[in-house]
């Protein structure tokens, strides 16, 4: 065959990457902005302005304690980003080296590592996170840790799967013939190749983390009051959804937008990276 039909049409198109990146940048900017400025002090309680519907002063309305919902949503972003981000970093820091190692070592060492990954996967993630959070006490940090544990095998598998294929490629054999050590090949040849996949997966896990953090916070196991958190805002809004729907809508939308931004970015990156990987193979 001299003419290959495109192995895969671009799954979603460059638009998704643009939208995803645009939205992600927006969310990051808002998160950063909220560190220095919000319309109101997010913790300021105004007893005279309880449960006010959105108006020109409070764009997202106020909550049961008279706090400005827009400010709370903005300030809550930092928590979501920090928890999901640390969980991803935690997973990366452990999962990637393990995956590289497993890819390089076939046989029982690979088996042991992958079995360990299977073992983690065998645990119901959210429930185990609940258990871990209960064991260590509910806090944002512990939520990140609990979620991070489940990111380890995810990254491990991605790296190991792609790395395994690379180890049988000629240029790696050439590197071996050039006397490169296993570790050096892993770092110099394998890692740069799987990095793209890792970035994609990191975006996906970030999105998963934001949703999971919201779930944990919803159960009261995430960031603690008065620190603003989207999941807890949703939990608290639940009973007021009839009288003050804005309390449920805006944090929900914030979670939705963040997860959407990250998963669009991940998808878009995958599509950008995939054809190149295909061409190389």
């Amino acid at each position: 065959m001299t003419f290959a039909a495109p192995k895969r049409m671009r799954a979603i198109g460059p638009r998704s990457l643009k939208i995803g990146l645009g939205l992600s940048v927006f969310i990051i900017l808002v998160t950063l902005l909220a560190l220095v400025w919000t319309p109101f002090d997010p913790l300021f309680q105004n007893p005279d302005a309880r449960l006010m519907a959105p108006d020109s002063q409070h764009l997202f309305g106020t909550d049961a304690l008279g706090r400005d919902v827009l400010s709370l949503v903005m300030a809550g972003a930092a928590n979501s980003v920090a928890v999901a981000g640390s969980a991803v970093i935690f997973g990366l820091a452990i999962g990637v080296p393990l995956g590289l190692w497993a890819a390089a070592r076939s046989g029982w060492r690979d088996d042991v590592v992958m079995r360990g990954g299977d073992l983690v996967f065998a645990f119901p993630s959210l429930l185990t996170a609940v258990m871990l959070a209960a064991a260590t006490g509910p806090s944002a940090f512990n939520a990140a840790l609990a979620l991070g544990v489940f990111n380890i095998p995810v990254f491990m598998r991605v790296v190991r799967g792609a790395g395994r294929g690379l180890w049988s490629r000629d240029f790696v054999t050439a590197a071996r013939a050039a006397g490169q050590s296993t570790r050096s090949i892993s770092i110099r040849h394998i890692l740069p190749h799987v990095l793209g996949l890792v970035v994609v997966q990191a975006a996906v896990q970030f999105a998963v983390g934001v949703a999971a953090e919201a779930g944990l916070s919803y159960l009261g196991l995430g960031a603690q009051p008065p620190a603003p958190s989207w999941g807890r805002m949703l939990a608290e809004s639940q009973t007021l959804i009839g009288t003050a729907p804005w309390l449920a809508i805006f944090p929900g939308l914030a979670i939705f937008a963040t997860v959407l931004a990250l998963s669009l970015t991940g998808d878009g990156l995958r599509d950008r990276l995939d054809p190149r990987l295909k061409r190389e193979v």
Partner: peptide, 22 residues
């Protein structure tokens, strides 16, 4: 359909549950 899938993936299921109850 892709838009729908993306939205479906991004929507937190407990929020969806809340809206369904409502």
């Amino acid at each position: 359909l892709i838009g729908l899938m993306q939205a479906g993936i991004a929507i937190p299921n407990f929020w969806l549950g809340l809206l369904l109850i409502l």
